[in-house]
Design a protein around this nucleic acid. Structure first.
Lengths: 180, 180
DNA sequence: TCTATATATTTGCGATACAAAATGTTTGTA
DNA sequence: TACAAACATTTTGTATCGCAAATATATAGA
């Protein structure tokens, strides 16, 4: 009786562990590999979005990246200064600015390895059909659990770091330890 | 003949899409929810590691977080200034500093929701045993593909953003568009 | 003792990330 | 037309994060 319960608990634990492993690997690769071209994660991410369909308005880009427009502006500054993207002010509505990849940018993004994705792709290709199906079904169930069925599949990954500083700021004591 | 090939391609695409969805959801929750206590991702992450087994030496903490020691110092500064962690210099070897959670810190970390994880947990619990097994097997296969079998399952998530600046710095052109 | 190594911190720099304010544009309305 | 409101983007200011290199202190070894 209790046995079945234990087995399930163990299985659940394994699922979570494996999920963490997947996260870790993918993140690790994104860390080391995506910067082949000297691009940071968000920069490459923006370029991938642009590669999907430029030109894009700045606000649209921000929305697709789930980032604040002002954040995107900074990223675009860096991409533009490297000649990977260009901004053009619309002539119809001079408020909007559309962004596109340059030829160089398009080239760079196309040959960026995406190690994790590549690994997955070839790995999945080599998988026996039945196991592939298992993977597919399993992940689909996970997506269902997370209620993410309707989400547009975002590019492999997002990044974020910041906090909104809910408190009025604790005044940032600098350097505390340092006994004696 | 070609049919089978197509089906496989589609299945592979679905797997990648679903994986992206999982990433997105988990990340989204981590973004919005983990900051319940006003903690950033890395801060909460450090606290989780500390909760697993303090006291920990600073260098060990850095290693477990896959971060540079100097980065951890900053995070600890902020945690300490909020009274969530404490640093103590060892008496045996006065070079080392050990870190622990304060009572308040322990409390906070224990009641931090971990929305995504909670969702997964309850969702998986409600899953029929057979489907749970499918999820488990599928993820296990993925882990195998990624060669992550031997990784210690890291806490649900890591964060990182930065690049090492491979070039001697492109001199940062500020503000370029702005035609006219 | 003198030197090398180890541990943590400081310093310097770049990049995210957000909010609020500023700038320039367009649209609606009196 | 004149003016106000709404919009899109950028600027400004602040807070992290993240790393490398330099520092300070402590330990270990020759």
């Amino acid at each position: 009786m209790a046995k079945k319960r234990d087995e399930r608990s163990i299985a659940i634990g394994r699922v979570l562990d494996d999920l963490r492993r997947v996260f870790q690997v993918v993140h690790g690769y994104s860390k080391r590999a995506e910067r082949v071209g000297g691009l940071t994660g968000p920069q490459l991410w923006a370029m991938k979005v642009l590669a999907e369909g430029s030109p894009v308005r700045v606000s649209d880009l921000a929305q697709r990246m789930y980032l604040h427009p002002s954040t995107v502006v900074g990223i675009l500054d860096r991409l533009e200064s490297r000649g990977l993207a260009t901004r053009t002010r619309s002539t119809e509505d001079r408020r909007v600015v559309t962004v596109s990849l340059t030829e160089e940018g398009r080239l760079l993004v196309s040959k960026t390895p995406q190690v994790a994705q590549g690994l997955l792709l070839t790995g999945l290709k080599d998988l026996p059909t039945e196991e592939l199906h298992t993977v597919r079904t399993g992940l689909s169930l996970l997506v269902g659990i997370l209620g993410a069925r309707d989400l547009p599949p975002r590019l492999l990954f997002s990044y974020e770091v910041n906090a909104p500083a809910p408190e009025p700021r604790p005044h940032a004591i600098r350097r505390t330890a340092k006994d004696r």
